[in-house]
Design a protein around this nucleic acid. Structure first.
Length: 461
RNA sequence: GGCUGGAUAGCAAAGAGGCUAUGCAGCGGAUUGCAAAUCCGUCUACCCCGGUUCGAAUCCGGGUCCAGCCUCCA
């Protein structure tokens, strides 16, 4: 039984889809005006695992992750660069897809863009105005009337009065209430715009997600996800818009992932303490980054450090070592290890515990390998690989992983093999000084040798 | 100020009213020509103060500290 922590109720709940066997999942994606950073990588990977696991549990999953391709920052950046905003967004959408592929993130079922859903957005705003939930302000902006939605605050646990009393609330003369938020902004000079009943302009941020999610997945769908910082106000506003418009309950389960931190502070653009995915991939393999992201529960904060990434490498080394030298085989079915893995994942996608079960399994594989030989360990090894595959890791050939040359400046494989042959001869001659000399020489070059009976295998540190 | 979360061994990170988490690192042993890898064993824990209980890291109450949101943010 899959349990999901629902941010709407602040507790774990047994997951029950609206339609048996089917899951509709919507995740707030990126605003594409720059390269993705590690925080973005976390959402991508966290929900990729949700997607993979739901499918492994037999659900037919429709996974929608939107792209915000029109907003203030995009316009500002495009103007700075002196380029069309669509040229800018296209570039960063491509970059994002490249990063995703590197991290082993499966493409979502649909990836709608705000600019391709303007009619749906306008239709939704019209309905909101008709139903008395929105109004045109003096500035020409269309605003959502928060006071018209009594349940406002139910997701984030806030009271409207407390919010009004907050110090950080912006006062805007054209709004009836400082809590009201914009649905449609009138065009300013040098800005892209679309025609609407309220004049040329563009959509506000929150309305696009309401429009795209309900259009594609229906008024009421199963799971809505995103970063924790979107819970308020973005997701609160989405609920207000969607439920006021459709009269139906919006998403059943809300999932929010925790932040990546640097020195115990949130990684973010405004704090300027972020690493892009690309930055990190220069020094670490993408699979290590993915493992790192899965090494803590998705709701917990995760501190970025080189120590953590090194730890991820070490963990993967151990798992790949267990698979090394095993012949291809069918995976064992429903052993206790598989149960443990599934139980962990059923518990609100507890990836650290799932990983722990993989290490338990690896130990058994190693033991079988040592005591009864590679054939005997093969099917459990295949199970290890299969389960790890649900997390999107451990799918490389073990030698490929262990011998990978991350920065591309290591000794080439042929030279290493030649040295190994030389050492095997020295060993046969019982010339230990020479054999150890070769091993030390390779060690200095970052190559570690392992003697397996008469054979010698190698890996890079 | 309001609202969320969190505090677990040297580090990272799960769990959880009585049963070895796990990984890295350390220590001892097995294996090895010596190593490496692997296996076995093992040392470091549950922020503080009360309470409930036969028993509390785990539940309850009160502190302290940390992070996040309340402005764009994954």
């Amino acid at each position: 039984m899959l349990e999901i922590y629902n941010s709407l109720t602040n507790k774990k709940e047994t997951f029950k889809p609206i339609v048996e066997g089917k899951v509709n999942l919507y995740v707030c994606g990126m605003t594409v005006y720059d390269f993705c950073h590690l925080g973005h990588a976390r959402v991508l990977v966290a929900f990729d695992v949700v997607y993979r696991f739901l499918k492994a549990r037999g659900y037919d999953v429709t996974y929608v992750r939107n792209i915000t391709d029109i907003d203030d920052k995009i316009i500002a950046r495009a103007n700075e660069n002196g380029e069309e905003f669509l040229a800018l967004t296209e570039r960063f959408i491509d970059a994002m897809h490249e990063d995703e592929r590197a991290l082993g993130v499966l493409p979502p079922t649909k990836e709608p863009k705000a600019t391709e859903n303007i009619p749906e957005i306008i239709a939704m705003i019209e309905t909101l105005i008709e139903k008395g939930h929105a109004y045109v302000g003096e500035s020409g902006d269309v605003y959502y009337d928060v006071s018209s939605f009594p349940e406002y605050g139910k997701l984030s646990g806030r009271k409207v009065d407390d919010l009004r009393a907050g110090e950080r609330i912006a006062v805007d003369e054209s709004k009836k209430d400082p809590l009201d938020f914009v649905l449609w902004k009138p065009v300013k000079p040098d800005e892209p715009s679309w025609e609407s009943p309220w004049g040329d302009g563009r959509p506000g941020w929150h309305i696009e997600c309401s429009a795209m999610s309900t259009t594609i997945l229906g008024n009421n769908f199963d799971i809505h996800g995103g970063g924790h910082d979107l819970q308020f106000p973005h997701h609160e506003n989405e609920i207000a818009q969607s439920e006021a418009c459709t009269g139906e309950h919006f998403a059943n389960y809300w999932m929010h992932n925790g932040f990546i931190r640097i020195n115990d502070e949130k990684m973010s653009k405004s704090l300027n303490n972020f690493f892009t995915i690309r930055d990190v991939l220069e020094s670490y393999s993408p699979e290590a980054v993915r493992y790192f992201l899965l090494s803590s529960h998705y709701r917990s904060p995760l501190n970025y450090s080189t120590e953590s990434l090194d730890g991820a490498m070490a963990g993967l080394d151990r798992l790949y070592n267990a698979l090394r030298g095993l012949p291809e085989a069918e995976a064992d079915r429903w052993t206790e290890y598989e149960d443990k893995f599934y139980a962990a994942m059923d518990d609100d996608f507890n990836t650290p515990e799932a990983l722990a079960s993989l290490f338990d399994l690896a130990r058994v594989v190693n033991k079988l390998h040592n005591t009864k030989g590679p054939e005997a360990a093969a099917s459990l090894g295949a199970l290890l690989k299969k389960l790890a595959g649900l997390l999107g890791i451990l799918q490389l050939n073990p030698d490929e992983w262990l011998q990978q040359d991350a920065d591309g400046d290591g000794m080439d494989a042929a030279s290493i093999e030649a040295k190994i042959q030389e050492r095997i001869q020295a060993k046969a001659d019982k010339d230990w000084a020479k054999a150890d000399g070769i091993r030390d020489e390779l060690k200095a070059a970052g190559i570690t040798l392992e003697d397996k009976g008469a054979d010698t295998i190698w890996r890079r540190d």
